[in-house]
Amino acid sequence: MPQSAPVIALGDLNDPRVLRLLDDHLADMYATSPPESVHALDVSGLQHPDVTFWALAEGEQLLGCVALKQLDARHGELKSMRTDAAARGRGFGRLLLEHVVAEARARGYTRLSLETGAEDFFRPARALYARYGFLETEPFADYALDPNSVFFTLELVS
């Protein structure tokens, strides 16, 4: 029987598969960055009304997740983008990023920003963001300068 196509849908923050993926995400963040430089959201942060969380699945297999936080009526922040370790290298990070950019445009945002790590572990993510037109910028929202963080912004034009 053929495998179903990957689908991005609102994620269930009570789903054990989602919780495992988020636990893996936070574990990697704390393994690669000092605690004061980890800005990943835990489940309670993802449950905030200003945050929308999606999961990417193929059949019963959870492949990744991503969130979009509304900073104000025109500015969103990409949060918690993660591809399961077993699913890396198949273009799912690209699918998640394209989904969030499309959603930000649909919401009328003029800017989409993100924070990611400066360590080598985050090099593939930084390269992906750059390929999609994100440019390095100064800290935004409540962030402060941090040698372990890199900040990106994508200007969204209609």
Results as ranks from 00 to 15, higher is better:
Q3D: 14
Q3G: 09
S4Q: 12
A5M: 13
A9M: 12
G11H: 04
N14D: 15
D15W: 06
P16N: 06
R17S: 13
L22I: 13
L26K: 07
A27Y: 07
D28F: 13
Y30S: 04
A31V: 00
S33Q: 15
S33N: 15
P34Q: 07
P35L: 06
P35K: 05
E36L: 04
L41D: 05
D42Y: 10
V43Y: 09
L46E: 01
H48F: 04
P49A: 04
T52W: 11
T52K: 13
E58N: 08
L62S: 01
L62A: 03
L62Y: 01
C65I: 00
Q70K: 12
G76V: 01
A87Q: 07
R88N: 00
R90N: 15
G91Q: 09
F92V: 00
G93F: 09
G93D: 03
L95N: 05
L96M: 06
V101Y: 04
E103P: 02
E103T: 15
R105S: 03
A106C: 09
A106Q: 14
G108Q: 00
S113E: 01
S113D: 07
E115P: 12
A118V: 03
E119N: 11
F121I: 11
P124F: 10
A125I: 07
R126A: 11
A127H: 14
A127Q: 15
L135C: 14
L135R: 15
E138K: 13
P139C: 04
A141R: 04
D142N: 13
P147A: 02
F151T: 05
F152R: 01
E155A: 15
L156V: 08
L156T: 08
V157D: 13
